[in-house]
Design a protein around this nucleic acid. Structure first.
Lengths: 219, 219
DNA sequence: AGAATAGTGTCTGTCAGACAGTATCGC
DNA sequence: GCGATACTGTCTGACAGACACTATTCT
Protein backbone atom coordinates (compact mmCIF):
# COMPACT_ATOMS: atom_id res chain seq x y z
CA UNK A 1 0.00 0.00 0.00
CA UNK A 2 1.53 3.22 -1.16
CA UNK A 3 1.85 6.03 1.33
CA UNK A 4 2.02 9.68 0.43
CA UNK A 5 5.75 9.63 1.12
CA UNK A 6 6.35 7.15 -1.63
CA UNK A 7 4.69 9.37 -4.19
CA UNK A 8 5.87 12.77 -3.03
CA UNK A 9 9.46 13.23 -1.89
CA UNK A 10 10.28 15.48 1.00
CA UNK A 11 11.86 18.71 -0.28
CA UNK A 12 14.18 20.58 2.05
CA UNK A 13 16.67 23.43 1.70
CA UNK A 14 19.96 23.55 3.59
CA UNK A 15 22.24 26.56 3.82
CA UNK A 16 25.95 26.74 4.50
CA UNK A 17 26.60 30.18 5.98
CA UNK A 18 30.23 31.26 5.85
CA UNK A 19 31.91 34.13 7.61
CA UNK A 20 35.38 35.28 8.65
CA UNK A 21 36.49 35.32 12.27
CA UNK A 22 40.05 36.29 13.16
CA UNK A 23 41.10 35.84 9.55
CA UNK A 24 39.73 32.30 9.57
CA UNK A 25 36.90 30.92 7.50
CA UNK A 26 33.98 29.67 9.58
CA UNK A 27 30.76 27.81 8.80
CA UNK A 28 27.58 28.09 10.83
CA UNK A 29 26.23 24.98 12.53
CA UNK A 30 22.99 24.71 14.49
CA UNK A 31 22.03 22.08 17.01
CA UNK A 32 18.73 20.55 15.96
CA UNK A 33 15.85 20.88 18.42
CA UNK A 34 13.45 18.43 16.80
CA UNK A 35 13.45 14.90 15.45
CA UNK A 36 14.81 13.50 13.30
CA UNK A 37 18.43 13.84 14.34
CA UNK A 38 17.48 15.94 17.40
CA UNK A 39 20.43 17.34 19.38
CA UNK A 40 22.85 16.74 16.52
CA UNK A 41 24.76 19.50 14.82
CA UNK A 42 23.66 20.34 11.29
CA UNK A 43 23.55 23.04 8.66
CA UNK A 44 20.56 25.32 9.09
CA UNK A 45 17.80 23.92 6.96
CA UNK A 46 14.10 23.41 6.70
CA UNK A 47 11.28 21.91 4.75
CA UNK A 48 10.05 23.79 1.70
CA UNK A 49 6.70 25.48 2.34
CA UNK A 50 5.00 25.97 -1.01
CA UNK A 51 2.30 28.08 0.57
CA UNK A 52 4.75 30.77 1.70
CA UNK A 53 7.91 30.27 -0.42
CA UNK A 54 8.11 31.74 -3.91
CA UNK A 55 11.18 29.71 -4.89
CA UNK A 56 13.77 27.42 -3.36
CA UNK A 57 16.09 30.39 -2.94
CA UNK A 58 13.35 32.27 -1.11
CA UNK A 59 12.91 29.22 1.10
CA UNK A 60 16.62 29.28 1.91
CA UNK A 61 16.40 32.93 2.93
CA UNK A 62 13.33 32.22 5.04
CA UNK A 63 15.20 29.44 6.83
CA UNK A 64 17.95 31.86 7.77
CA UNK A 65 15.47 34.45 8.96
CA UNK A 66 13.63 31.85 11.01
CA UNK A 67 16.55 30.03 12.60
CA UNK A 68 19.16 32.73 13.08
CA UNK A 69 17.21 35.97 12.51
CA UNK A 70 19.34 37.25 9.68
CA UNK A 71 18.35 38.24 6.14
CA UNK A 72 21.12 37.61 3.64
CA UNK A 73 20.47 38.89 0.14
CA UNK A 74 23.12 36.75 -1.52
CA UNK A 75 22.22 33.10 -1.39
CA UNK A 76 23.63 30.86 -4.11
CA UNK A 77 22.60 27.36 -5.09
CA UNK A 78 25.29 24.70 -4.97
CA UNK A 79 23.65 21.39 -5.94
CA UNK A 80 21.13 18.84 -4.74
CA UNK A 81 21.35 15.73 -2.57
CA UNK A 82 18.69 13.12 -2.99
CA UNK A 83 17.70 9.53 -2.37
CA UNK A 84 15.55 7.20 -0.32
CA UNK A 85 17.85 6.92 2.70
CA UNK A 86 19.53 10.26 3.35
CA UNK A 87 16.64 11.33 5.63
CA UNK A 88 14.90 8.82 7.92
CA UNK A 89 11.54 10.34 7.01
CA UNK A 90 11.81 8.85 3.52
CA UNK A 91 12.74 9.76 -0.03
CA UNK A 92 14.06 13.31 0.10
CA UNK A 93 15.58 16.04 -2.00
CA UNK A 94 17.85 18.53 -0.24
CA UNK A 95 18.80 21.63 -2.20
CA UNK A 96 22.01 23.11 -0.85
CA UNK A 97 22.76 26.84 -0.86
CA UNK A 98 25.58 28.89 0.51
CA UNK A 99 25.52 32.42 1.89
CA UNK A 100 28.20 34.84 3.02
CA UNK A 101 27.72 36.72 6.29
CA UNK A 102 29.66 40.00 6.58
CA UNK A 103 32.43 39.73 9.14
CA UNK A 104 31.00 42.59 11.19
CA UNK A 105 27.59 40.93 11.52
CA UNK A 106 28.72 37.68 13.12
CA UNK A 107 27.25 38.68 16.46
CA UNK A 108 23.90 39.72 14.99
CA UNK A 109 22.75 36.11 14.84
CA UNK A 110 20.04 35.05 17.26
CA UNK A 111 19.15 31.41 17.65
CA UNK A 112 15.50 30.49 17.29
CA UNK A 113 13.89 27.07 17.08
CA UNK A 114 17.31 25.49 17.49
CA UNK A 115 19.16 24.46 20.64
CA UNK A 116 22.39 26.29 19.94
CA UNK A 117 24.66 27.85 17.34
CA UNK A 118 28.36 27.54 16.74
CA UNK A 119 30.97 28.44 14.19
CA UNK A 120 33.11 25.58 12.92
CA UNK A 121 36.22 25.39 10.77
CA UNK A 122 35.01 24.00 7.42
CA UNK A 123 38.47 23.56 5.93
CA UNK A 124 38.88 20.12 7.41
CA UNK A 125 36.06 17.59 7.45
CA UNK A 126 33.62 17.62 10.37
CA UNK A 127 32.24 14.22 11.30
CA UNK A 128 29.07 13.51 13.21
CA UNK A 129 26.83 16.02 11.49
CA UNK A 130 23.17 15.18 10.93
CA UNK A 131 22.00 13.61 7.67
CA UNK A 132 24.59 14.10 4.89
CA UNK A 133 25.50 17.57 6.08
CA UNK A 134 29.19 16.74 6.37
CA UNK A 135 29.22 16.01 2.67
CA UNK A 136 27.08 19.06 1.95
CA UNK A 137 29.45 21.32 3.83
CA UNK A 138 32.38 20.03 1.80
CA UNK A 139 30.45 20.71 -1.40
CA UNK A 140 29.57 24.22 -0.32
CA UNK A 141 33.17 24.96 0.66
CA UNK A 142 34.35 23.70 -2.69
CA UNK A 143 31.81 25.93 -4.46
CA UNK A 144 33.00 29.03 -2.62
CA UNK A 145 36.64 28.17 -3.21
CA UNK A 146 36.02 27.66 -6.93
CA UNK A 147 34.28 31.01 -7.12
CA UNK A 148 37.20 32.84 -5.49
CA UNK A 149 39.73 30.84 -7.49
CA UNK A 150 37.87 32.04 -10.59
CA UNK A 151 38.75 35.60 -9.63
CA UNK A 152 35.47 36.52 -7.95
CA UNK A 153 35.93 38.75 -4.92
CA UNK A 154 34.15 37.59 -1.74
CA UNK A 155 33.12 41.15 -0.86
CA UNK A 156 30.02 39.99 0.98
CA UNK A 157 32.23 38.71 3.79
CA UNK A 158 33.63 42.19 4.42
CA UNK A 159 32.19 45.41 5.81
CA UNK A 160 31.07 48.03 3.31
CA UNK A 161 34.51 49.63 3.35
CA UNK A 162 37.66 47.58 3.68
CA UNK A 163 41.38 47.69 3.01
CA UNK A 164 43.12 45.69 0.33
CA UNK A 165 45.02 43.79 2.98
CA UNK A 166 41.75 42.75 4.65
CA UNK A 167 40.43 41.56 1.30
CA UNK A 168 43.60 39.59 0.67
CA UNK A 169 43.42 37.95 4.12
CA UNK A 170 39.81 36.99 3.37
CA UNK A 171 40.69 35.37 0.06
CA UNK A 172 43.57 33.54 1.71
CA UNK A 173 41.27 32.22 4.44
CA UNK A 174 38.88 30.85 1.83
CA UNK A 175 41.49 29.35 -0.44
CA UNK A 176 43.68 28.05 2.36
CA UNK A 177 46.87 29.29 0.75
CA UNK A 178 48.88 32.53 0.78
CA UNK A 179 48.53 35.00 -2.08
CA UNK A 180 51.23 37.30 -3.37
CA UNK A 181 50.62 40.88 -2.32
CA UNK A 182 51.97 42.51 -5.44
CA UNK A 183 50.06 40.29 -7.84
CA UNK A 184 46.87 40.59 -5.83
CA UNK A 185 46.91 44.38 -5.77
CA UNK A 186 47.94 44.64 -9.41
CA UNK A 187 44.98 42.53 -10.44
CA UNK A 188 42.57 44.70 -8.46
CA UNK A 189 43.99 47.94 -9.88
CA UNK A 190 43.48 46.67 -13.41
CA UNK A 191 39.97 45.39 -12.80
CA UNK A 192 37.09 47.81 -12.37
CA UNK A 193 35.61 45.93 -9.43
CA UNK A 194 36.73 48.21 -6.61
CA UNK A 195 36.43 51.94 -5.98
CA UNK A 196 38.96 53.73 -3.81
CA UNK A 197 37.35 55.93 -1.17
CA UNK A 198 38.89 58.99 0.47
CA UNK A 199 38.88 57.28 3.85
CA UNK A 200 41.84 55.71 5.54
CA UNK A 201 42.20 53.37 8.47
CA UNK A 202 44.42 54.94 11.12
CA UNK A 203 45.94 52.20 13.19
CA UNK A 204 49.27 51.57 14.78
CA UNK A 205 51.19 51.92 11.52
CA UNK A 206 50.89 53.52 8.14
CA UNK A 207 47.20 54.24 7.34
CA UNK A 208 45.60 51.98 4.73
CA UNK A 209 43.23 53.26 2.09
CA UNK A 210 39.66 51.98 2.24
CA UNK A 211 37.93 50.59 -0.83
CA UNK A 212 34.35 49.66 -1.61
CA UNK A 213 32.60 47.53 -4.24
CA UNK A 214 31.97 49.24 -7.53
CA UNK A 215 28.33 49.71 -8.49
CA UNK A 216 28.70 47.12 -11.22
CA UNK A 217 29.94 44.45 -8.86
CA UNK A 218 27.87 41.31 -8.54
CA UNK A 219 29.03 38.20 -6.76
CA UNK B 1 -8.71 24.55 2.04
CA UNK B 2 -5.29 23.18 1.42
CA UNK B 3 -4.86 20.61 -1.32
CA UNK B 4 -2.04 18.10 -1.49
CA UNK B 5 -0.32 20.26 -4.09
CA UNK B 6 0.04 23.10 -1.66
CA UNK B 7 1.92 20.91 0.80
CA UNK B 8 4.00 18.81 -1.54
CA UNK B 9 5.67 20.40 -4.54
CA UNK B 10 5.88 18.54 -7.83
CA UNK B 11 9.44 17.36 -8.42
CA UNK B 12 10.56 16.86 -12.01
CA UNK B 13 13.87 16.31 -13.76
CA UNK B 14 14.69 17.81 -17.16
CA UNK B 15 17.68 16.88 -19.29
CA UNK B 16 19.44 18.88 -21.97
CA UNK B 17 21.07 16.34 -24.28
CA UNK B 18 23.80 17.78 -26.47
CA UNK B 19 25.49 16.24 -29.45
CA UNK B 20 27.53 17.26 -32.49
CA UNK B 21 26.10 17.07 -36.00
CA UNK B 22 28.15 18.30 -38.94
CA UNK B 23 30.50 20.11 -36.59
CA UNK B 24 27.55 21.97 -35.04
CA UNK B 25 26.32 21.75 -31.48
CA UNK B 26 22.77 20.45 -31.21
CA UNK B 27 20.30 20.04 -28.36
CA UNK B 28 17.58 17.41 -28.22
CA UNK B 29 13.96 18.55 -28.12
CA UNK B 30 10.92 16.33 -27.77
CA UNK B 31 7.35 17.15 -28.63
CA UNK B 32 5.19 16.53 -25.59
CA UNK B 33 2.42 13.97 -25.97
CA UNK B 34 0.50 14.73 -22.79
CA UNK B 35 -0.92 17.70 -20.95
CA UNK B 36 0.18 20.08 -19.70
CA UNK B 37 1.80 21.79 -22.66
CA UNK B 38 0.84 18.93 -25.01
CA UNK B 39 2.21 19.25 -28.55
CA UNK B 40 4.78 21.82 -27.53
CA UNK B 41 8.50 21.28 -27.88
CA UNK B 42 10.41 20.76 -24.65
CA UNK B 43 13.50 19.25 -23.09
CA UNK B 44 13.02 15.59 -22.26
CA UNK B 45 11.82 15.45 -18.69
CA UNK B 46 9.61 13.61 -16.28
CA UNK B 47 8.24 13.46 -12.80
CA UNK B 48 10.45 11.96 -10.11
CA UNK B 49 9.29 8.50 -9.09
CA UNK B 50 10.53 7.83 -5.57
CA UNK B 51 9.45 4.21 -5.76
CA UNK B 52 11.83 3.43 -8.64
CA UNK B 53 14.47 6.22 -8.65
CA UNK B 54 17.45 6.03 -6.32
CA UNK B 55 18.43 9.65 -6.84
CA UNK B 56 17.59 12.64 -9.00
CA UNK B 57 20.46 11.73 -11.30
CA UNK B 58 19.08 8.22 -11.64
CA UNK B 59 15.70 9.75 -12.47
CA UNK B 60 17.34 11.80 -15.22
CA UNK B 61 18.89 8.69 -16.70
CA UNK B 62 15.57 6.87 -16.48
CA UNK B 63 13.88 9.70 -18.34
CA UNK B 64 16.36 9.35 -21.18
CA UNK B 65 15.91 5.59 -21.31
CA UNK B 66 12.15 5.98 -21.31
CA UNK B 67 11.74 8.79 -23.80
CA UNK B 68 14.56 8.23 -26.26
CA UNK B 69 15.81 4.72 -25.43
CA UNK B 70 19.36 5.69 -24.67
CA UNK B 71 21.42 5.14 -21.53
CA UNK B 72 23.96 7.90 -20.97
CA UNK B 73 26.37 7.33 -18.11
CA UNK B 74 27.47 10.94 -17.81
CA UNK B 75 24.63 13.13 -16.61
CA UNK B 76 25.54 16.28 -14.74
CA UNK B 77 23.38 18.51 -12.61
CA UNK B 78 23.16 22.15 -13.64
CA UNK B 79 20.77 23.87 -11.22
CA UNK B 80 17.14 23.97 -10.15
CA UNK B 81 14.13 25.97 -11.30
CA UNK B 82 11.29 26.41 -8.86
CA UNK B 83 8.20 28.37 -8.01
CA UNK B 84 4.43 28.35 -7.90
CA UNK B 85 3.81 29.31 -11.53
CA UNK B 86 6.42 27.65 -13.74
CA UNK B 87 4.20 24.56 -14.15
CA UNK B 88 0.40 24.88 -14.44
CA UNK B 89 0.01 21.87 -12.16
CA UNK B 90 1.18 23.95 -9.22
CA UNK B 91 4.27 24.62 -7.11
CA UNK B 92 7.12 22.71 -8.75
CA UNK B 93 10.82 22.05 -8.56
CA UNK B 94 12.59 21.17 -11.80
CA UNK B 95 16.14 19.86 -11.48
CA UNK B 96 18.06 20.41 -14.70
CA UNK B 97 20.78 18.06 -15.92
CA UNK B 98 22.81 17.92 -19.07
CA UNK B 99 24.17 14.91 -20.92
CA UNK B 100 26.51 14.45 -23.86
CA UNK B 101 25.55 12.01 -26.59
CA UNK B 102 28.46 10.63 -28.64
CA UNK B 103 28.38 11.96 -32.18
CA UNK B 104 28.21 8.45 -33.62
CA UNK B 105 25.12 7.56 -31.59
CA UNK B 106 22.84 10.33 -32.79
CA UNK B 107 20.75 7.93 -34.83
CA UNK B 108 20.38 5.42 -32.00
CA UNK B 109 17.61 7.48 -30.45
CA UNK B 110 14.09 6.08 -30.61
CA UNK B 111 11.14 8.20 -29.57
CA UNK B 112 8.78 6.73 -27.03
CA UNK B 113 5.91 8.39 -25.20
CA UNK B 114 6.58 11.57 -27.12
CA UNK B 115 5.19 12.78 -30.43
CA UNK B 116 8.49 13.51 -32.11
CA UNK B 117 12.16 14.33 -31.68
CA UNK B 118 14.34 16.98 -33.24
CA UNK B 119 17.77 18.46 -32.88
CA UNK B 120 17.89 22.23 -32.45
CA UNK B 121 20.70 24.76 -32.46
CA UNK B 122 21.07 25.84 -28.82
CA UNK B 123 23.51 28.65 -29.50
CA UNK B 124 20.79 31.15 -30.14
CA UNK B 125 17.65 31.33 -28.02
CA UNK B 126 14.70 29.16 -28.95
CA UNK B 127 11.33 30.66 -28.16
CA UNK B 128 8.08 28.82 -27.73
CA UNK B 129 9.38 25.94 -25.64
CA UNK B 130 7.17 24.46 -22.94
CA UNK B 131 7.40 25.66 -19.32
CA UNK B 132 10.67 27.52 -18.70
CA UNK B 133 12.65 25.18 -20.94
CA UNK B 134 13.99 28.01 -23.08
CA UNK B 135 15.66 29.40 -19.99
CA UNK B 136 16.76 25.95 -18.89
CA UNK B 137 18.40 25.26 -22.23
CA UNK B 138 20.35 28.51 -21.98
CA UNK B 139 21.51 27.54 -18.50
CA UNK B 140 22.59 24.09 -19.65
CA UNK B 141 24.46 25.52 -22.62
CA UNK B 142 26.23 27.96 -20.36
CA UNK B 143 27.21 25.13 -18.01
CA UNK B 144 28.74 23.09 -20.84
CA UNK B 145 30.54 26.11 -22.25
CA UNK B 146 31.98 26.96 -18.84
CA UNK B 147 33.21 23.41 -18.44
CA UNK B 148 35.01 23.45 -21.79
CA UNK B 149 36.29 26.99 -21.20
CA UNK B 150 37.76 25.65 -17.96
CA UNK B 151 39.91 23.28 -20.02
CA UNK B 152 37.74 20.19 -19.69
CA UNK B 153 37.67 18.09 -22.85
CA UNK B 154 34.18 17.12 -24.08
CA UNK B 155 35.30 13.61 -24.97
CA UNK B 156 31.84 12.16 -24.40
CA UNK B 157 30.67 13.84 -27.60
CA UNK B 158 33.22 11.91 -29.67
CA UNK B 159 33.64 8.28 -30.64
CA UNK B 160 36.06 6.19 -28.61
CA UNK B 161 38.90 7.09 -30.96
CA UNK B 162 39.16 10.49 -32.59
CA UNK B 163 41.64 12.85 -34.19
CA UNK B 164 42.88 16.05 -32.62
CA UNK B 165 41.22 18.04 -35.39
CA UNK B 166 37.87 16.43 -34.60
CA UNK B 167 38.33 17.29 -30.93
CA UNK B 168 39.18 20.86 -31.80
CA UNK B 169 36.10 21.21 -34.05
CA UNK B 170 33.97 19.90 -31.20
CA UNK B 171 35.33 22.42 -28.73
CA UNK B 172 34.84 25.20 -31.27
CA UNK B 173 31.22 24.15 -31.82
CA UNK B 174 30.55 24.32 -28.09
CA UNK B 175 32.35 27.57 -27.45
CA UNK B 176 31.16 29.25 -30.62
CA UNK B 177 34.57 30.65 -31.44
CA UNK B 178 37.64 29.42 -33.33
CA UNK B 179 40.59 28.00 -31.43
CA UNK B 180 44.22 28.21 -32.48
CA UNK B 181 45.50 24.88 -33.76
CA UNK B 182 49.03 25.23 -32.43
CA UNK B 183 47.98 26.29 -28.95
CA UNK B 184 45.27 23.63 -28.79
CA UNK B 185 47.61 20.79 -29.72
CA UNK B 186 50.41 22.07 -27.49
CA UNK B 187 48.06 22.07 -24.50
CA UNK B 188 46.98 18.49 -25.18
CA UNK B 189 50.54 17.25 -25.59
CA UNK B 190 51.51 18.70 -22.23
CA UNK B 191 48.46 17.38 -20.42
CA UNK B 192 48.11 13.70 -19.65
CA UNK B 193 44.48 13.51 -20.70
CA UNK B 194 44.90 11.82 -24.08
CA UNK B 195 46.67 8.69 -25.23
CA UNK B 196 47.91 8.38 -28.78
CA UNK B 197 46.89 5.13 -30.46
CA UNK B 198 48.68 3.38 -33.30
CA UNK B 199 45.69 3.89 -35.58
CA UNK B 200 45.38 6.49 -38.29
CA UNK B 201 42.47 7.82 -40.26
CA UNK B 202 43.10 7.38 -43.96
CA UNK B 203 41.05 9.95 -45.80
CA UNK B 204 41.50 12.14 -48.79
CA UNK B 205 44.73 13.67 -47.51
CA UNK B 206 47.46 13.10 -45.02
CA UNK B 207 46.37 10.49 -42.44
CA UNK B 208 45.59 11.79 -38.95
CA UNK B 209 46.59 9.99 -35.79
CA UNK B 210 43.79 8.71 -33.57
CA UNK B 211 43.72 9.41 -29.86
CA UNK B 212 41.64 8.12 -26.96
CA UNK B 213 40.88 9.27 -23.44
CA UNK B 214 43.45 8.34 -20.84
CA UNK B 215 42.28 5.98 -18.11
CA UNK B 216 42.42 8.77 -15.56
CA UNK B 217 40.11 11.01 -17.56
CA UNK B 218 36.88 12.04 -15.92
CA UNK B 219 34.60 14.67 -17.35
C1' DA C 1 52.86 19.08 -59.50
C1' DG C 2 49.11 20.87 -56.83
C1' DA C 3 45.52 20.68 -53.40
C1' DA C 4 44.30 19.53 -48.93
C1' DT C 5 44.83 18.34 -44.43
C1' DA C 6 48.14 16.95 -40.45
C1' DG C 7 51.37 18.50 -37.60
C1' DT C 8 55.54 21.66 -35.79
C1' DG C 9 58.35 25.76 -34.60
C1' DT C 10 58.82 30.38 -33.31
C1' DC C 11 57.73 35.02 -31.98
C1' DT C 12 55.38 37.97 -28.89
C1' DG C 13 52.29 39.94 -25.52
C1' DT C 14 50.18 39.07 -21.16
C1' DC C 15 50.10 37.90 -16.68
C1' DA C 16 51.13 35.72 -12.21
C1' DG C 17 54.68 34.69 -8.71
C1' DA C 18 58.71 36.25 -6.39
C1' DC C 19 60.81 39.63 -4.11
C1' DA C 20 63.23 43.83 -3.31
C1' DG C 21 62.52 48.37 -2.53
C1' DT C 22 60.07 52.78 -1.00
C1' DA C 23 56.45 55.39 1.85
C1' DT C 24 54.24 56.70 5.98
C1' DC C 25 52.55 56.01 10.18
C1' DG C 26 53.24 55.30 15.91
C1' DC C 27 56.48 55.27 19.35
C1' DG D 1 65.75 56.42 14.52
C1' DC D 2 63.14 51.99 14.58
C1' DG D 3 59.55 48.82 13.91
C1' DA D 4 55.53 47.81 11.48
C1' DT D 5 52.50 47.93 7.95
C1' DA D 6 51.05 50.00 3.30
C1' DC D 7 52.21 50.25 -1.23
C1' DT D 8 55.18 50.08 -5.72
C1' DG D 9 58.60 48.52 -9.21
C1' DT D 10 61.01 45.04 -11.58
C1' DC D 11 62.54 40.57 -13.04
C1' DT D 12 61.32 36.13 -14.77
C1' DG D 13 59.04 32.03 -16.21
C1' DA D 14 54.74 29.99 -17.99
C1' DC D 15 51.56 30.10 -21.34
C1' DA D 16 48.18 31.47 -25.04
C1' DG D 17 47.39 33.62 -29.58
C1' DA D 18 49.15 34.40 -34.08
C1' DC D 19 51.11 32.60 -37.88
C1' DA D 20 54.45 30.72 -40.87
C1' DC D 21 56.49 26.57 -41.85
C1' DT D 22 57.12 21.46 -42.88
C1' DA D 23 55.05 16.67 -43.75
C1' DT D 24 52.25 13.33 -45.96
C1' DT D 25 48.67 11.86 -48.47
C1' DC D 26 45.43 11.77 -52.83
C1' DT D 27 44.47 13.07 -57.49
Amino acid sequence: MATKRELFPLVVVDVAVFTIEQDQLRALLVQRALEPEAKRWALPGGVLKPDIDDSLQAAARRVLRTKVSVDLPHVEEVCTFSGPTRDPRGWSVAVLFYALLPRDKVHALVRSKVEALKWADPTHPISGLAFDHGLQLRSALHAVQSKVEAQTLPLHLLPEKFTLTELQRTCEAILGRPLDKGAFRRRLKNSQELIATDDFVRGAQRPAQLYKASDTFTF
